[in-house]
Simulated scan of single mutants.
Amino acid sequence: MKKISILLLLFLGLVSCREASGIKVLYLAHGLPQTHPVHKGILEFQKALELKSKGTLKVKIFPDAQLGSEREVLELLQIGSVAATKVSAATLSNFVPEYHILGIPYLFRDKEHRFKVLEGPIGKSILEKGSKFWLRGLCYYDAGSRSFYTSKKAIRTPDDLKGLKIRVMNNQMAINMVNSMGGSATPLSYGELYTALQQGVVDGAENNEPSFVSSNHYEISKYYTLDEHSAVPDVLLIGTKYWDKLSEDEKKWVQEAADESSQAQKKFWSDSVEASMKTAKEAGVEIIIPEKSLFAEKSKSVLEEFVAKHPDMATIVNQIKAE
């Protein structure tokens, strides 16, 4: 009931109100805990925007999924009940098809290539694609690379995935990727994963280092294989219903604050990865550095199938590979 009450208040227009003092409040909701490096990046956005606007634009943050799941909050942006959010590009791809591209396995050669693409013309053009769906992208946040972790046996080559049930997000790209490598992709709610690993419902999962540790999955899964098969970023978004009400100066401040927060968040992420790996190693997790080319070769069919189904996006894919 508490959540419904909050949403009702937002729906009635609090999100875009101008207070008597001339202050505009931007409501930003996301599903991450306040200790997460992405939340820390959002705090930088909050501080930068208030500074640039001399206090006339303020950000009110609702973390910890207080206003619902990523999908639910995206829908709130579309109707104008919430101004902004942070979601995974994987979730966003269900609203804006071009974001599917960022989930293609081994699309990016390395971290440098990834950020050159995301922060350049290609990445910015994808951010703009969401406007026709009332979801304007502001910037990307580093969400690292996703790798496999398992509880029963180590994954050193793709052959080791055969017969293993691997939890994935409910995302077709992720499902196709695991299946192409020989595993059995098992979509499952993230909140159910710890128990599923513990009870053997699934044999493993795939995620980045901070998530592997913050979820306590390292307590059960003692093998972590850094195959880095995908690097799906997070995206900071603003609803066009809110954006369109801003003046040109206000839009400029919002975009500049987002860009600055994106750069600051990279450092938060890097520090979190280092701390997470230290925790995992001290807990007895075996960190495996495999031959990535073996995994990349096995998953090539995912790219081929995607391009065949979406020929209109082949140009973007080729531009990324040539960058």
Rank of each mutant, 00 (worst) to 15 (best):
K2C: 01
K3E: 09
I4P: 00
L7K: 14
L8H: 13
L9Q: 13
G13N: 06
R18Y: 10
A20V: 10
S21P: 00
I23M: 07
K24H: 11
K24P: 05
V25A: 14
Y27A: 15
G31L: 09
T35Q: 08
T35G: 01
P37A: 03
V38I: 05
K40R: 11
G41D: 10
I42D: 03
E44R: 10
F45R: 02
K47G: 00
E50P: 00
T56W: 06
T56A: 14
L57S: 09
V59N: 11
V59R: 07
K60N: 15
K60G: 04
D64V: 11
Q66S: 08
E75F: 06
L77M: 08
L77T: 07
A84C: 11
T85W: 12
T85F: 08
S88Y: 12
S88V: 03
A90S: 15
H100G: 01
I101K: 04
G103A: 13
I104K: 02
I104T: 04
F108K: 02
E112D: 07
H113T: 05
H113A: 02
F115P: 10
F115R: 06
E119H: 11
G120M: 09
G123K: 03
K124D: 10
I126C: 08
L127R: 08
G130E: 05
F133G: 00
L135T: 07
L135K: 06
L138D: 04
C139Y: 04
S147M: 05
F148Q: 06
Y149G: 01
T150G: 03
I155D: 07
D160F: 13
L161V: 09
G163P: 14
G163T: 12
I166N: 05
R167W: 11
A174C: 01
N176H: 14
M177G: 07
S180V: 03
S184E: 15
L188D: 03
L188I: 15
Y190Q: 12
E192W: 09
E192P: 05
Y194G: 01
Y194C: 00
V201Q: 09
A205F: 07
A205C: 01
E206L: 13
E206V: 03
S221N: 09
S221E: 08
K222R: 13
Y223M: 09
Y223W: 15
Y223C: 03
Y224G: 10
T225V: 04
T225A: 07
H229G: 11
A231W: 11
T240K: 14
T240E: 12
Y242A: 15
Y242R: 10
W243P: 02
L246G: 14
L246Q: 11
L246S: 15
S247K: 12
S247D: 12
S247R: 11
S247N: 11
E248Q: 14
D249A: 12
K251D: 06
K252N: 12
V254R: 04
A258H: 09
D259Q: 15
Q263A: 13
Q265N: 02
F268P: 01
W269Y: 15
D271E: 13
D271I: 00
V273E: 08
E274Y: 10
S276N: 01
A280Q: 01
K281D: 04
E282D: 07
G284D: 14
V285C: 12
V285Q: 11
I288D: 03
P290Y: 05
E291L: 10
K292R: 15
K292C: 09
F295L: 02
K300E: 13
V302L: 03
A308I: 11
D312P: 00
T315P: 00
T315H: 14
V317C: 03
Q319T: 00
I320G: 04
A322V: 01
E323N: 04
